[in-house]
Amino acid sequence: MPIYCTEKKTATIFFQRENGTKGQLIVSPAPVEIVCLQSNNQGKYIFTLAASGSNPDCSGDNGYQFGGDRIADSYQLGRLIPNYTSFGCSVQEIIFYPSGQTDVVHPVQYRISQRNNPDYNPSEGIQVKDGIGKVVFKEFGIKCNWVVSCDDDCPEGSHKCTHNKYPGYCCVPCKETGDRLKNIANKVGR
């Protein structure tokens, strides 16, 4: 886990969201620890399955028993399957998506409850801890290619210029500026 700005007072983290907007976070006290949060798109919901017991008349005994949790985005009722070992009662197939996991419920009576999956994150993100280990920022939908500057310094690969707006300076990326100047020179030289 990368730690930035040791023996400094503040850390400024520059990042870009997946929708293209840029963000900046100033953290004090430094150092800061930044962690890339991996995406987890196993499923948006947790479905809890409960099936009734069996009676010879296939009506179920309304004594629903826990059948486990399934993590998925949705489910669909599948085909009825004859089951001759259970007094001729049919069983119902339930298919959970996107995993394609199939459960067979016996007999036909069952209950499915749905709740949000707290671990569902369709995209990566970042988590930032301050110098005392407290999480000060956590957000998904941010690319894991942040840039950090310490105190009033500019990040590596940039040049510090004075500016009349707060905080009194700006950081100009050297490579981008060099590429622009080269492009202008090539156009003028033609």
Rank of each mutant, 00 (worst) to 15 (best):
I46N: 08
K160T: 06
G63Y: 08
G60M: 09
V147S: 12
K9A: 14
N186I: 09
P155Q: 04
G78V: 04
K143M: 03
Q65N: 08
C144S: 06
P173Y: 11
P31K: 09
V148K: 02
F137W: 11
L49N: 02
G131W: 05
N117R: 10
P31V: 06
I13L: 14
L181R: 12
Y110M: 08
P2F: 01
S90Q: 13
L37M: 13
A50E: 15
M1R: 03
W146E: 12
Y166T: 13
V105M: 10
C161M: 13
D69F: 00
I95P: 02
K165V: 08
S86K: 10
P167W: 04
S74A: 11
R115A: 11
D103T: 07
E93V: 07
F137D: 01
D151T: 09
S99M: 01
E124V: 00
I184N: 01
P118N: 11
V105W: 01
I94Y: 03
V27I: 15
N19A: 05
N62T: 04
G23E: 11
G23M: 10
C174G: 00
T177A: 15
N117V: 06
V148W: 02
P29W: 10
R17H: 13
H106Y: 06
N40P: 01
P29Q: 09
C161W: 12
G60C: 10
N164T: 12
N121K: 14
V105N: 03
V128G: 03
G168W: 07
V35N: 12
R111N: 14
Q42K: 13
K129L: 13
Y97V: 00
I142T: 04
E139Y: 02
R17Q: 12
G133K: 05
F66H: 08
G131H: 05
S123F: 09
Y84H: 08
C154W: 05
V128F: 03
T10D: 05
N55F: 03
N186H: 07
F140T: 12
F96D: 05
V136I: 13
